[in-house]
Design a protein around this nucleic acid. Structure first.
Length: 215
DNA sequence: GCGACAG
DNA sequence: ATCTTGTCGC
């Protein structure tokens, strides 16, 4: 037998198996000094580059990074997005020499049809606190105020699954949701302090690093 | 049957 | 995700 890729049905089953392990609680002693940003860049639908950067949360200085080139073993299917990027991202995380206190993922956490987006998945598998920061919403929301820091509930199927967060005055909000071992308020606070422009520096730098390695 | 649907 | 420069506005 070959170690074939999961079928979509098996992937859904895997999400439902792991979902109960997600924690929305923040360790009272959690101090976020090193924050990791995770992102994947694609050369085409096959070749990809997973990039992880670790920043000092106070100075926003890059203190570590890792890059892994790989191949997508799973098609892009909304709701199963994690299965496309997870293997390479986990490998990149293993190559870090600095252990992050928090993971910032490019995508959703609990704001997912089965409440188990990429941020939850990677958080549970690594047992590290994680948050999801998405550029487009997975749910409905009322537009938050114009000031930096304004926020509004992100609601899906009658549940608050995350928050639309204005990270920069007058600019379209981002969508923050809990991944693992952190609460929504703390998640938003951590994301906000990482933002100089609309997107967190963690995602901006991991994105730039990944693209640079496509060549 | 038709639309929705992270990256 | 990716294809893509200059340009309008504060």
């Amino acid at each position: 037998m070959t170690a074939g890729a999961l079928t979509p049905e098996e992937a859904v089953a895997e999400q439902e198996r792991l979902r109960p392990l997600v924690s929305t609680r923040t360790d009272p002693d959690l101090v976020v000094r090193h924050v990791a940003g995770l992102d994947v860049a694609y050369a085409d639908d096959e070749r990809l580059v997973a990039a992880v950067v670790v920043l000092d949360a106070d100075s926003l200085t890059t203190v570590d990074s890792a890059v892994v080139t790989g191949r997508a073993e799973f098609p892009y299917v909304p709701g199963l997005f994690a299965f496309r990027e997870l293997p390479s991202l986990l490998e990149a995380l293993e190559r870090l020499t600095v252990r992050p206190d928090l993971l910032v993922c490019d995508g959703q956490g609990l704001a997912h049809p089965r409440r188990f987006g990429l941020a939850c998945h990677i958080g549970v598998l690594t047992d590290l606190p994680s948050v999801g920061v998405a550029k487009t919403p997975m749910g409905r929301f009322a537009m938050p105020g114009d000031a930096r820091g304004s926020a509004a509930d992100l609601v899906d199927d009658g549940e608050v699954v995350g928050r639309a967060l204005r990270t920069r005055e007058g600019v379209k909000p981002v969508f923050v949701s809990v991944g693992h071992r952190v609460d929504l308020d703390r998640a938003c606070a951590e994301v906000l302090r990482l933002c100089v422009t609309r997107l967190p520096e963690t995602t901006r730098r991991s994105d730039a690093l990944g693209r640079a390695h496509l060549r």
